[in-house]
């Protein structure tokens, strides 16, 4: 059974004035197997962010289903959603979203604190994770004292500390320089190799080229997908570029 299954997802916004309807997602279908590393690509306005928000249970679809481990997250009651998100999902954002009011350590522990875990358990989880991500020396510092690349690693640690079923990453390399980007993508590949399921939304070809599968979204639906198979990241990069060119020139591909 797939870890995540998206069936006929549709999202329609109504503009505040005039009541015009905007179709952000028209019909989205795809699934993610356990241990997969999936990238979703698309241009600005293609519905990527809307899709991710729905997957993250931050937004509700107009119709359709999102099944996580076979359970429809659309039907989860409002007051259980936060706990659900906390326990099953990990988030990595473009602008890191670390809180300046907390030290690095407290930022990582935040989800556990919200989940009401005991302090010894927090410590037990934090130590190996921080060592794994190479951020042990940063724990006592504050977000404004460390570099962007380091902040994103901290954000990854925060996403992983709850041992989520799936990590949702929204343009995780968007605010990083090329060196930090490489380092983060290596980290994602490594985590995936260790069995972590990752779903990443990006419009960076380079970021997507590290994924095992790339979905392309256009006009609110999944337009095409590429499997890595045995390709190297370089070959994958080329395939993605070709697809993007096709997309831009308006070709009629189908997944």
């Amino acid at each position: 059974m797939p870890i995540l299954q998206v069936n006929d997802l549709k999202k329609t916004y109504t503009t505040r004035f005039g009541g015009q309807q905007v179709h952000a997602l028209t019909k989205v279908n795809f699934s993610v197997e356990a241990g997969e590393y999936v990238a979703i690509m698309g241009e600005s306005g293609s519905g990527k962010t809307t899709l991710l928000n729905i997957l993250a249970a931050l937004d509700k679809p107009t119709s359709g289903k999102v099944l996580l481990d076979g359970k429809d997250i659309v039907t989860i009651r409002e007051r259980d959603i936060a706990a659900f998100r906390r326990d099953h999902l990990g988030f990595v954002f473009q602008d890191f979203n670390l809180l300046d009011t907390f030290s690095v350590k407290d930022n990582i522990l935040l989800p556990l604190v919200l989940a009401g875990r005991t302090y010894p358990e927090m410590e037990r989880r934090l130590k190996p994770l921080a060592a794994h991500l190479g951020i042990e020396e940063l724990l006592g510092k504050y977000p404004y004292e460390i570099s962007g690349g380091q902040q994103q690693r901290v954000a990854v640690a925060r996403a992983l500390i709850t041992e989520p079923r799936i990590v949702l990453a929204d343009e995780p390399t968007g605010a990083l320089d090329s060196k930090a980007t490489d380092s983060l993508l290596r980290l994602f590949s490594q985590l995936n190799a260790e069995g972590q399921t990752i779903l990443m939304v990006t419009h960076s070809t380079k970021a997507a080229s590290h994924a095992g599968r790339v979905l392309f979204i256009r006009d609110g639906e999944v337009f095409h997908q590429i499997y890595r198979g045995m390709s190297t990241p370089e070959e994958m990069y080329q395939k993605i570029s070709d697809t993007l060119t096709l997309l831009a020139s308006g070709g009629e591909g189908r997944a």
Binding site: A56, L58, E78, R79, I81, A82, A83, R85, R86, D87, F91, F93, N97, L98, L99, T101, L110, P111, L114, A115, R158, T162
Partner: peptide, 15 residues
């Protein structure tokens, strides 16, 4: 911004 972030990492609206 603080509360937005916290909501994203799992703080409920009620909390």
């Amino acid at each position: 911004r603080r509360f937005e972030i916290m909501q994203k990492v799992g703080l409920s609206r009620e909390e």
